[in-house]
Design a protein around this nucleic acid. Sequence first.
DNA 1: GGGCGGTTGATTGTATACAATTTGGCATCG
DNA 2: CGATGCCAAATTGTATACAATCAACCGCCC
Lengths: 237, 237
Amino acid sequence: MNSTADALHTINNPTETGAQQIRDAIREAIVERRLSPGTKLSESDVGNLFKVSRTLARAALQALSYEGLVNVEKNRGAFVAYPSPEEARQIFAARRLVEPGILSEAARKITPSQIRQLKELLIEEGRLMNERGQSARRAEIKASGDFHLMLASFSGNLIMQRFMEELIARSSLVIALYGQSSVSSCGHAEHGDIIAAIERNDIERACHLMLHHISHIETDLDLRERKSFGLKEAFEV
Amino acid sequence: MNSTADALHTINNPTETGAQQIRDAIREAIVERRLSPGTKLSESDVGNLFKVSRTLARAALQALSYEGLVNVEKNRGAFVAYPSPEEARQIFAARRLVEPGILSEAARKITPSQIRQLKELLIEEGRLMNERGQSARRAEIKASGDFHLMLASFSGNLIMQRFMEELIARSSLVIALYGQSSVSSCGHAEHGDIIAAIERNDIERACHLMLHHISHIETDLDLRERKSFGLKEAFEV
DNA sequence: GGGCGGTTGATTGTATACAATTTGGCATCG
DNA sequence: CGATGCCAAATTGTATACAATCAACCGCCC
Protein backbone atom coordinates (compact mmCIF):
# COMPACT_ATOMS: atom_id res chain seq x y z
CA MET A 1 0.00 0.00 0.00
CA ASN A 2 2.34 2.71 1.17
CA SER A 3 5.84 1.79 0.25
CA THR A 4 7.52 3.82 2.97
CA ALA A 5 5.85 1.88 5.73
CA ASP A 6 6.24 -1.47 4.06
CA ALA A 7 9.93 -0.83 3.76
CA LEU A 8 10.06 -1.10 7.52
CA HIS A 9 9.14 -4.73 7.33
CA THR A 10 11.83 -5.57 4.85
CA ILE A 11 14.35 -6.42 7.46
CA ASN A 12 14.13 -10.13 6.81
CA ASN A 13 16.40 -12.16 4.63
CA PRO A 14 16.00 -11.45 0.97
CA THR A 15 14.85 -15.01 0.35
CA GLU A 16 11.94 -16.14 2.39
CA THR A 17 11.27 -19.77 2.97
CA GLY A 18 7.65 -20.79 2.73
CA ALA A 19 7.02 -20.93 6.45
CA GLN A 20 8.02 -17.31 6.85
CA GLN A 21 5.53 -16.16 4.27
CA ILE A 22 2.79 -17.99 6.10
CA ARG A 23 3.98 -16.55 9.38
CA ASP A 24 3.86 -13.05 7.94
CA ALA A 25 0.41 -13.59 6.50
CA ILE A 26 -0.99 -14.85 9.79
CA ARG A 27 0.73 -12.12 11.74
CA GLU A 28 -0.79 -9.51 9.48
CA ALA A 29 -4.21 -11.09 9.97
CA ILE A 30 -3.78 -11.00 13.73
CA VAL A 31 -2.46 -7.46 13.87
CA GLU A 32 -5.17 -6.20 11.55
CA ARG A 33 -7.70 -7.96 13.75
CA ARG A 34 -9.14 -10.24 11.17
CA LEU A 35 -8.30 -13.06 13.56
CA SER A 36 -9.77 -12.65 17.01
CA PRO A 37 -7.80 -13.46 20.14
CA GLY A 38 -8.47 -16.98 21.29
CA THR A 39 -9.16 -18.30 17.80
CA LYS A 40 -7.82 -21.79 17.35
CA LEU A 41 -5.26 -22.20 14.61
CA SER A 42 -5.12 -25.89 13.86
CA GLU A 43 -2.10 -27.02 11.95
CA SER A 44 -4.16 -28.86 9.37
CA ASP A 45 -6.43 -25.91 8.75
CA VAL A 46 -3.55 -23.50 8.34
CA GLY A 47 -1.83 -25.96 6.05
CA ASN A 48 -4.90 -26.45 3.88
CA LEU A 49 -5.56 -22.74 3.77
CA PHE A 50 -2.12 -21.97 2.41
CA LYS A 51 -1.86 -25.17 0.40
CA VAL A 52 1.15 -26.47 2.23
CA SER A 53 1.85 -29.39 4.49
CA ARG A 54 1.43 -29.39 8.22
CA THR A 55 5.19 -29.14 8.51
CA LEU A 56 5.26 -25.58 7.27
CA ALA A 57 2.08 -24.61 9.04
CA ARG A 58 3.54 -25.85 12.28
CA ALA A 59 6.78 -23.97 11.73
CA ALA A 60 4.86 -20.76 11.11
CA LEU A 61 2.82 -21.19 14.27
CA GLN A 62 5.93 -21.89 16.28
CA ALA A 63 7.49 -18.73 14.94
CA LEU A 64 4.44 -16.70 15.92
CA SER A 65 4.55 -18.13 19.40
CA TYR A 66 8.06 -16.73 19.81
CA GLU A 67 6.66 -13.33 19.01
CA GLY A 68 3.92 -13.72 21.58
CA LEU A 69 1.13 -13.48 19.04
CA VAL A 70 0.17 -17.13 19.34
CA ASN A 71 0.07 -19.48 22.28
CA VAL A 72 0.83 -23.10 21.60
CA GLU A 73 -0.31 -25.46 24.31
CA LYS A 74 1.27 -28.86 24.36
CA ASN A 75 -0.93 -31.48 22.74
CA ARG A 76 -3.72 -28.94 22.56
CA GLY A 77 -2.83 -26.72 19.64
CA ALA A 78 -2.16 -23.11 18.76
CA PHE A 79 -4.44 -20.18 19.54
CA VAL A 80 -4.30 -16.52 18.73
CA ALA A 81 -2.90 -14.99 21.88
CA TYR A 82 -5.40 -13.75 24.42
CA PRO A 83 -3.31 -11.40 26.55
CA SER A 84 -4.41 -11.12 30.15
CA PRO A 85 -4.83 -7.65 31.62
CA GLU A 86 -1.60 -8.22 33.46
CA GLU A 87 0.18 -9.06 30.23
CA ALA A 88 -1.33 -5.97 28.66
CA ARG A 89 0.04 -3.82 31.44
CA GLN A 90 3.46 -5.38 31.03
CA ILE A 91 3.44 -4.71 27.32
CA PHE A 92 2.78 -1.03 27.86
CA ALA A 93 5.22 -0.88 30.73
CA ALA A 94 7.83 -2.29 28.38
CA ARG A 95 7.00 0.33 25.82
CA ARG A 96 7.30 3.13 28.34
CA LEU A 97 10.62 1.67 29.29
CA VAL A 98 12.16 1.46 25.83
CA GLU A 99 10.47 4.00 23.61
CA PRO A 100 11.94 7.13 25.19
CA GLY A 101 15.40 5.68 24.72
CA ILE A 102 14.69 4.72 21.15
CA LEU A 103 13.24 8.12 20.46
CA SER A 104 16.28 9.88 21.93
CA GLU A 105 18.62 7.83 19.81
CA ALA A 106 16.55 8.36 16.69
CA ALA A 107 16.19 12.10 17.26
CA ARG A 108 19.89 12.46 17.82
CA LYS A 109 20.82 11.15 14.40
CA ILE A 110 17.73 11.94 12.37
CA THR A 111 18.09 13.48 8.91
CA PRO A 112 15.78 15.98 7.23
CA SER A 113 14.76 13.30 4.78
CA GLN A 114 13.71 11.06 7.62
CA ILE A 115 11.69 13.81 9.24
CA ARG A 116 9.91 14.19 5.94
CA GLN A 117 9.13 10.47 5.95
CA LEU A 118 7.62 10.78 9.39
CA LYS A 119 5.46 13.66 8.24
CA GLU A 120 4.30 11.72 5.22
CA LEU A 121 3.30 8.87 7.43
CA LEU A 122 1.43 11.29 9.63
CA ILE A 123 -0.49 12.66 6.67
CA GLU A 124 -1.32 9.17 5.49
CA GLU A 125 -2.52 8.39 8.98
CA GLY A 126 -4.76 11.43 9.01
CA ARG A 127 -6.17 10.60 5.63
CA LEU A 128 -7.10 7.10 6.72
CA MET A 129 -8.67 8.48 9.87
CA ASN A 130 -11.25 10.34 7.87
CA GLU A 131 -12.06 7.44 5.63
CA ARG A 132 -14.84 5.01 6.30
CA GLY A 133 -14.84 1.26 6.15
CA GLN A 134 -13.12 -1.70 7.72
CA SER A 135 -10.23 -1.64 5.33
CA ALA A 136 -9.41 1.97 6.12
CA ARG A 137 -9.65 1.22 9.80
CA ARG A 138 -7.15 -1.59 9.45
CA ALA A 139 -4.79 0.57 7.47
CA GLU A 140 -5.10 3.24 10.14
CA ILE A 141 -4.16 0.81 12.87
CA LYS A 142 -1.17 -0.24 10.86
CA ALA A 143 -0.09 3.32 10.11
CA SER A 144 -0.40 4.24 13.76
CA GLY A 145 1.97 1.46 14.71
CA ASP A 146 4.27 2.24 11.83
CA PHE A 147 4.98 5.62 13.34
CA HIS A 148 6.62 3.98 16.33
CA LEU A 149 8.30 1.43 14.13
CA MET A 150 9.74 4.07 11.87
CA LEU A 151 11.26 5.84 14.84
CA ALA A 152 12.77 2.54 15.91
CA SER A 153 14.27 2.00 12.49
CA PHE A 154 15.75 5.51 12.57
CA SER A 155 17.45 4.67 15.83
CA GLY A 156 19.72 2.45 13.79
CA ASN A 157 19.55 -0.38 16.29
CA LEU A 158 18.24 -3.51 14.66
CA ILE A 159 17.80 -5.30 17.96
CA MET A 160 15.59 -2.59 19.40
CA GLN A 161 13.77 -2.40 16.11
CA ARG A 162 12.89 -6.07 16.24
CA PHE A 163 11.81 -5.77 19.84
CA MET A 164 9.59 -2.82 18.99
CA GLU A 165 7.99 -4.80 16.19
CA GLU A 166 7.05 -7.42 18.72
CA LEU A 167 5.71 -4.85 21.15
CA ILE A 168 3.67 -3.01 18.52
CA ALA A 169 2.13 -6.23 17.24
CA ARG A 170 1.20 -7.31 20.74
CA SER A 171 -0.15 -3.86 21.52
CA SER A 172 -2.45 -4.18 18.58
CA LEU A 173 -3.76 -7.42 20.02
CA VAL A 174 -4.32 -5.82 23.38
CA ILE A 175 -6.17 -2.88 21.86
CA ALA A 176 -8.32 -5.27 19.89
CA LEU A 177 -9.25 -7.00 23.13
CA TYR A 178 -9.58 -4.20 25.62
CA GLY A 179 -9.91 -1.05 23.52
CA GLN A 180 -13.05 0.93 24.21
CA SER A 181 -13.45 3.89 21.92
CA SER A 182 -12.33 3.72 18.33
CA VAL A 183 -9.69 5.84 19.74
CA SER A 184 -6.36 5.40 18.25
CA SER A 185 -7.48 8.61 16.61
CA CYS A 186 -6.45 10.84 19.46
CA GLY A 187 -2.99 9.37 19.04
CA HIS A 188 -2.72 11.11 15.72
CA ALA A 189 -2.36 14.58 17.17
CA GLU A 190 0.21 13.33 19.66
CA HIS A 191 2.27 11.81 16.88
CA GLY A 192 2.32 15.22 15.28
CA ASP A 193 3.43 16.89 18.48
CA ILE A 194 6.26 14.42 18.86
CA ILE A 195 7.47 15.07 15.35
CA ALA A 196 7.35 18.80 16.01
CA ALA A 197 9.44 18.38 19.15
CA ILE A 198 11.96 16.28 17.27
CA GLU A 199 12.17 18.87 14.54
CA ARG A 200 13.12 21.65 16.91
CA ASN A 201 15.53 19.23 18.52
CA ASP A 202 13.77 19.31 21.86
CA ILE A 203 14.47 15.70 22.68
CA GLU A 204 13.52 16.06 26.31
CA ARG A 205 10.12 17.30 25.32
CA ALA A 206 9.70 14.62 22.66
CA CYS A 207 10.35 11.86 25.19
CA HIS A 208 7.95 13.43 27.61
CA LEU A 209 5.26 13.51 24.93
CA MET A 210 6.00 9.94 23.98
CA LEU A 211 5.52 8.74 27.53
CA HIS A 212 2.21 10.51 27.76
CA HIS A 213 1.20 9.18 24.39
CA ILE A 214 1.80 5.59 25.45
CA SER A 215 -0.03 6.15 28.70
CA HIS A 216 -2.95 7.67 26.83
CA ILE A 217 -3.26 4.57 24.70
CA GLU A 218 -3.20 2.41 27.80
CA THR A 219 -5.66 4.61 29.67
CA ASP A 220 -8.16 4.07 26.93
CA LEU A 221 -8.25 0.35 27.66
CA ASP A 222 -10.70 -1.39 29.93
CA LEU A 223 -8.38 -3.80 31.66
CA ARG A 224 -10.86 -5.38 34.03
CA GLU A 225 -10.74 -9.13 34.32
CA ARG A 226 -13.53 -10.10 32.02
CA LYS A 227 -12.13 -13.47 31.28
CA SER A 228 -15.03 -14.92 29.36
CA PHE A 229 -12.35 -17.45 28.69
CA GLY A 230 -14.19 -20.39 30.17
CA LEU A 231 -17.41 -20.02 28.26
CA LYS A 232 -19.02 -22.53 30.53
CA GLU A 233 -19.00 -19.97 33.34
CA ALA A 234 -20.97 -17.61 31.15
CA PHE A 235 -23.93 -19.96 31.51
CA GLU A 236 -23.33 -21.19 34.99
CA VAL A 237 -23.95 -17.63 36.18
CA MET B 1 24.27 -26.23 40.39
CA ASN B 2 22.99 -23.26 42.32
CA SER B 3 19.26 -23.50 42.59
CA THR B 4 18.64 -19.79 42.92
CA ALA B 5 20.11 -19.02 39.55
CA ASP B 6 18.55 -21.98 37.82
CA ALA B 7 15.18 -20.88 39.06
CA LEU B 8 15.53 -17.92 36.76
CA HIS B 9 15.39 -20.16 33.77
CA THR B 10 12.25 -21.93 34.88
CA ILE B 11 9.95 -19.50 33.16
CA ASN B 12 8.98 -21.94 30.45
CA ASN B 13 5.92 -24.07 30.34
CA PRO B 14 5.96 -26.86 32.85
CA THR B 15 5.92 -29.44 30.08
CA GLU B 16 8.70 -29.20 27.59
CA THR B 17 8.43 -30.75 24.19
CA GLY B 18 11.57 -32.45 22.95
CA ALA B 19 12.67 -29.67 20.67
CA GLN B 20 12.79 -27.23 23.55
CA GLN B 21 15.09 -29.45 25.56
CA ILE B 22 17.44 -29.62 22.63
CA ARG B 23 17.21 -25.89 22.15
CA ASP B 24 18.08 -25.33 25.79
CA ALA B 25 20.99 -27.74 25.62
CA ILE B 26 22.46 -26.06 22.56
CA ARG B 27 21.88 -22.61 23.96
CA GLU B 28 23.70 -23.56 27.11
CA ALA B 29 26.57 -24.89 25.03
CA ILE B 30 26.75 -21.66 23.07
CA VAL B 31 26.49 -19.38 26.07
CA GLU B 32 29.06 -21.38 27.99
CA ARG B 33 31.31 -21.17 24.96
CA ARG B 34 31.66 -24.84 24.32
CA LEU B 35 30.45 -24.09 20.81
CA SER B 36 32.47 -21.46 18.99
CA PRO B 37 30.84 -18.78 16.88
CA GLY B 38 30.67 -19.81 13.27
CA THR B 39 30.44 -23.51 14.02
CA LYS B 40 28.15 -25.29 11.64
CA LEU B 41 25.19 -27.02 13.22
CA SER B 42 23.92 -29.45 10.65
CA GLU B 43 20.46 -30.78 11.25
CA SER B 44 21.53 -34.38 10.86
CA ASP B 45 24.41 -34.01 13.27
CA VAL B 46 22.28 -32.34 15.90
CA GLY B 47 19.63 -34.99 15.43
CA ASN B 48 22.07 -37.85 15.77
CA LEU B 49 23.71 -36.25 18.77
CA PHE B 50 20.46 -36.01 20.68
CA LYS B 51 19.04 -39.21 19.23
CA VAL B 52 16.07 -37.55 17.59
CA SER B 53 14.97 -36.98 14.06
CA ARG B 54 15.91 -34.05 11.91
CA THR B 55 12.46 -32.63 12.52
CA LEU B 56 13.18 -31.84 16.13
CA ALA B 57 16.73 -30.78 15.45
CA ARG B 58 15.49 -28.35 12.86
CA ALA B 59 12.85 -26.96 15.21
CA ALA B 60 15.47 -26.38 17.88
CA LEU B 61 17.75 -24.56 15.45
CA GLN B 62 14.89 -22.41 14.24
CA ALA B 63 14.10 -21.47 17.80
CA LEU B 64 17.69 -20.49 18.44
CA SER B 65 17.71 -18.34 15.35
CA TYR B 66 14.83 -16.33 16.80
CA GLU B 67 16.98 -15.65 19.82
CA GLY B 68 19.84 -14.50 17.66
CA LEU B 69 22.19 -17.23 18.84
CA VAL B 70 22.15 -19.08 15.55
CA ASN B 71 22.02 -17.90 11.97
CA VAL B 72 20.20 -20.08 9.52
CA GLU B 73 21.00 -19.39 5.91
CA LYS B 74 18.57 -20.64 3.36
CA ASN B 75 19.69 -23.88 1.76
CA ARG B 76 23.02 -23.52 3.54
CA GLY B 77 22.36 -24.53 7.10
CA ALA B 78 22.61 -23.25 10.62
CA PHE B 79 25.69 -21.74 12.23
CA VAL B 80 26.46 -20.51 15.69
CA ALA B 81 26.03 -16.76 15.41
CA TYR B 82 29.11 -14.75 14.62
CA PRO B 83 28.11 -11.24 15.66
CA SER B 84 29.76 -8.45 13.73
CA PRO B 85 31.34 -5.61 15.69
CA GLU B 86 28.38 -3.49 14.67
CA GLU B 87 25.96 -6.08 16.07
CA ALA B 88 28.02 -6.22 19.23
CA ARG B 89 27.74 -2.47 19.65
CA GLN B 90 24.00 -2.65 19.13
CA ILE B 91 23.63 -5.36 21.74
CA PHE B 92 25.36 -3.23 24.33
CA ALA B 93 23.50 -0.13 23.20
CA ALA B 94 20.29 -2.06 23.75
CA ARG B 95 21.43 -3.06 27.21
CA ARG B 96 22.28 0.52 28.13
CA LEU B 97 18.86 1.47 26.88
CA VAL B 98 16.83 -1.05 28.87
CA GLU B 99 18.81 -2.02 31.94
CA PRO B 100 18.51 1.26 33.84
CA GLY B 101 14.75 1.09 33.43
CA ILE B 102 14.64 -2.51 34.52
CA LEU B 103 16.85 -1.74 37.47
CA SER B 104 14.65 1.18 38.53
CA GLU B 105 11.55 -0.92 38.40
CA ALA B 106 13.21 -3.79 40.26
CA ALA B 107 14.67 -1.52 42.94
CA ARG B 108 11.32 0.15 43.48
CA LYS B 109 9.58 -3.06 44.45
CA ILE B 110 12.42 -5.18 45.77
CA THR B 111 12.00 -7.12 49.03
CA PRO B 112 14.64 -7.83 51.66
CA SER B 113 14.50 -11.48 50.70
CA GLN B 114 15.31 -10.60 47.12
CA ILE B 115 18.21 -8.42 48.18
CA ARG B 116 19.51 -11.40 50.05
CA GLN B 117 19.24 -13.51 46.91
CA LEU B 118 21.28 -10.96 45.00
CA LYS B 119 23.94 -11.04 47.68
CA GLU B 120 24.06 -14.81 47.61
CA LEU B 121 24.56 -14.72 43.89
CA LEU B 122 27.34 -12.21 44.37
CA ILE B 123 29.08 -14.45 46.86
CA GLU B 124 28.76 -17.41 44.55
CA GLU B 125 30.20 -15.31 41.78
CA GLY B 126 33.15 -14.34 43.92
CA ARG B 127 33.75 -17.91 44.93
CA LEU B 128 33.87 -19.05 41.32
CA MET B 129 36.18 -16.19 40.44
CA ASN B 130 38.85 -17.61 42.69
CA GLU B 131 38.51 -21.14 41.46
CA ARG B 132 40.57 -22.59 38.69
CA GLY B 133 39.51 -24.61 35.71
CA GLN B 134 37.31 -24.36 32.69
CA SER B 135 34.23 -25.50 34.49
CA ALA B 136 34.55 -22.81 37.12
CA ARG B 137 35.13 -20.23 34.39
CA ARG B 138 31.92 -21.25 32.68
CA ALA B 139 29.98 -21.12 35.88
CA GLU B 140 31.41 -17.69 36.53
CA ILE B 141 30.26 -16.41 33.16
CA LYS B 142 26.83 -17.78 33.87
CA ALA B 143 26.66 -16.29 37.35
CA SER B 144 27.75 -12.92 36.03
CA GLY B 145 24.87 -12.92 33.57
CA ASP B 146 22.47 -14.24 36.16
CA PHE B 147 22.96 -11.09 38.19
CA HIS B 148 21.38 -9.04 35.42
CA LEU B 149 18.76 -11.68 34.81
CA MET B 150 17.77 -11.77 38.43
CA LEU B 151 17.25 -8.03 38.45
CA ALA B 152 15.08 -8.41 35.38
CA SER B 153 13.00 -11.07 37.10
CA PHE B 154 12.58 -8.82 40.12
CA SER B 155 11.20 -6.11 37.87
CA GLY B 156 8.13 -8.29 37.53
CA ASN B 157 7.89 -7.72 33.81
CA LEU B 158 8.04 -11.02 31.97
CA ILE B 159 8.46 -9.36 28.60
CA MET B 160 11.50 -7.40 29.67
CA GLN B 161 12.80 -10.49 31.41
CA ARG B 162 12.65 -12.50 28.20
CA PHE B 163 14.30 -9.69 26.27
CA MET B 164 17.09 -9.52 28.82
CA GLU B 165 17.65 -13.25 28.54
CA GLU B 166 18.20 -12.78 24.86
CA LEU B 167 20.54 -9.84 25.39
CA ILE B 168 22.58 -11.62 28.04
CA ALA B 169 22.96 -14.71 25.90
CA ARG B 170 24.08 -12.68 22.93
CA SER B 171 26.42 -10.66 25.12
CA SER B 172 28.08 -13.86 26.14
CA LEU B 173 28.67 -14.69 22.50
CA VAL B 174 30.13 -11.27 21.85
CA ILE B 175 32.47 -11.54 24.81
CA ALA B 176 33.56 -14.95 23.62
CA LEU B 177 34.45 -13.43 20.27
CA TYR B 178 35.91 -10.06 21.14
CA GLY B 179 36.77 -10.28 24.83
CA GLN B 180 40.40 -9.54 25.61
CA SER B 181 41.26 -10.00 29.23
CA SER B 182 39.64 -12.75 31.21
CA VAL B 183 37.90 -9.81 32.58
CA SER B 184 34.40 -10.34 33.59
CA SER B 185 36.12 -10.37 36.92
CA CYS B 186 36.15 -6.60 37.33
CA GLY B 187 32.42 -6.75 36.88
CA HIS B 188 32.14 -8.50 40.20
CA ALA B 189 32.93 -5.42 42.27
CA GLU B 190 30.52 -3.35 40.23
CA HIS B 191 27.74 -5.79 40.86
CA GLY B 192 28.39 -5.36 44.54
CA ASP B 193 28.28 -1.58 44.28
CA ILE B 194 24.97 -1.75 42.47
CA ILE B 195 23.46 -3.96 45.14
CA ALA B 196 24.69 -1.56 47.79
CA ALA B 197 23.06 1.37 46.01
CA ILE B 198 19.82 -0.54 45.71
CA GLU B 199 19.93 -1.40 49.37
CA ARG B 200 20.12 2.22 50.48
CA ASN B 201 17.41 2.97 47.93
CA ASP B 202 19.62 5.25 45.90
CA ILE B 203 18.08 4.28 42.59
CA GLU B 204 19.62 7.16 40.72
CA ARG B 205 23.05 6.03 41.77
CA ALA B 206 22.31 2.39 41.01
CA CYS B 207 21.30 3.24 37.45
CA HIS B 208 24.40 5.35 37.02
CA LEU B 209 26.56 2.47 38.20
CA MET B 210 24.74 0.08 35.92
CA LEU B 211 25.40 2.22 32.87
CA HIS B 212 29.06 2.40 33.71
CA HIS B 213 29.15 -1.31 34.36
CA ILE B 214 27.76 -2.10 30.92
CA SER B 215 30.13 0.33 29.29
CA HIS B 216 33.05 -1.22 31.14
CA ILE B 217 32.18 -4.61 29.76
CA GLU B 218 31.99 -3.17 26.28
CA THR B 219 35.20 -1.21 26.66
CA ASP B 220 37.00 -4.40 27.39
CA LEU B 221 36.20 -5.71 23.93
CA ASP B 222 38.35 -5.39 20.89
CA LEU B 223 35.74 -4.48 18.36
CA ARG B 224 38.00 -3.85 15.42
CA GLU B 225 36.79 -5.17 12.14
CA ARG B 226 38.65 -8.39 11.91
CA LYS B 227 35.96 -9.77 9.76
CA SER B 228 37.72 -12.67 8.22
CA PHE B 229 34.15 -13.09 7.13
CA GLY B 230 34.56 -11.82 3.61
CA LEU B 231 37.83 -13.55 3.07
CA LYS B 232 38.06 -12.21 -0.43
CA GLU B 233 38.78 -8.74 0.88
CA ALA B 234 41.64 -10.11 2.91
CA PHE B 235 43.50 -10.70 -0.34
CA GLU B 236 42.18 -7.85 -2.38
CA VAL B 237 43.86 -5.47 0.05
C1' DG C 1 -31.01 -40.36 37.06
C1' DG C 2 -26.30 -39.20 37.65
C1' DG C 3 -21.57 -40.23 37.93
C1' DC C 4 -17.88 -43.10 35.96
C1' DG C 5 -14.98 -45.54 32.62
C1' DG C 6 -13.85 -47.07 28.11
C1' DT C 7 -13.79 -46.16 23.33
C1' DT C 8 -13.63 -43.37 19.19
C1' DG C 9 -12.42 -39.40 16.61
C1' DA C 10 -9.63 -35.69 15.99
C1' DT C 11 -5.36 -33.24 16.73
C1' DT C 12 -0.75 -32.84 17.89
C1' DG C 13 4.20 -34.95 18.38
C1' DT C 14 7.74 -37.30 15.92
C1' DA C 15 9.94 -39.91 12.35
C1' DT C 16 10.81 -41.07 7.71
C1' DA C 17 10.77 -40.34 2.73
C1' DC C 18 11.19 -37.58 -1.26
C1' DA C 19 12.35 -33.14 -3.86
C1' DA C 20 15.26 -29.16 -4.52
C1' DT C 21 19.43 -26.74 -3.95
C1' DT C 22 24.18 -26.18 -3.07
C1' DT C 23 29.08 -27.64 -3.10
C1' DG C 24 33.10 -29.87 -4.49
C1' DG C 25 35.37 -32.67 -7.76
C1' DC C 26 36.29 -34.46 -12.23
C1' DA C 27 36.60 -34.51 -16.89
C1' DT C 28 36.83 -31.92 -20.93
C1' DC C 29 38.11 -28.17 -23.72
C1' DG C 30 40.65 -24.05 -24.95
C1' DC D 1 48.32 -25.88 -17.70
C1' DG D 2 44.24 -23.30 -16.44
C1' DA D 3 39.40 -22.42 -17.03
C1' DT D 4 34.81 -23.97 -17.76
C1' DG D 5 30.91 -26.92 -17.44
C1' DC D 6 28.80 -30.92 -15.84
C1' DC D 7 27.99 -34.60 -12.54
C1' DA D 8 27.54 -36.60 -7.89
C1' DA D 9 27.42 -36.34 -2.99
C1' DA D 10 25.71 -34.06 0.77
C1' DT D 11 22.49 -30.94 2.98
C1' DT D 12 18.40 -28.48 3.39
C1' DG D 13 13.24 -27.76 2.15
C1' DT D 14 8.87 -29.96 2.12
C1' DA D 15 5.52 -33.59 2.28
C1' DT D 16 3.70 -37.74 4.03
C1' DA D 17 3.16 -41.48 7.39
C1' DC D 18 2.90 -43.27 11.88
C1' DA D 19 2.55 -42.86 17.11
C1' DA D 20 0.89 -40.57 21.18
C1' DT D 21 -2.19 -37.66 23.45
C1' DC D 22 -6.47 -35.37 24.35
C1' DA D 23 -11.61 -34.53 24.18
C1' DA D 24 -15.98 -35.87 23.70
C1' DC D 25 -19.36 -39.19 23.44
C1' DC D 26 -21.69 -43.27 24.68
C1' DG D 27 -22.88 -47.03 27.45
C1' DC D 28 -22.61 -49.03 31.89
C1' DC D 29 -23.00 -49.48 36.71
C1' DC D 30 -24.36 -47.72 41.12
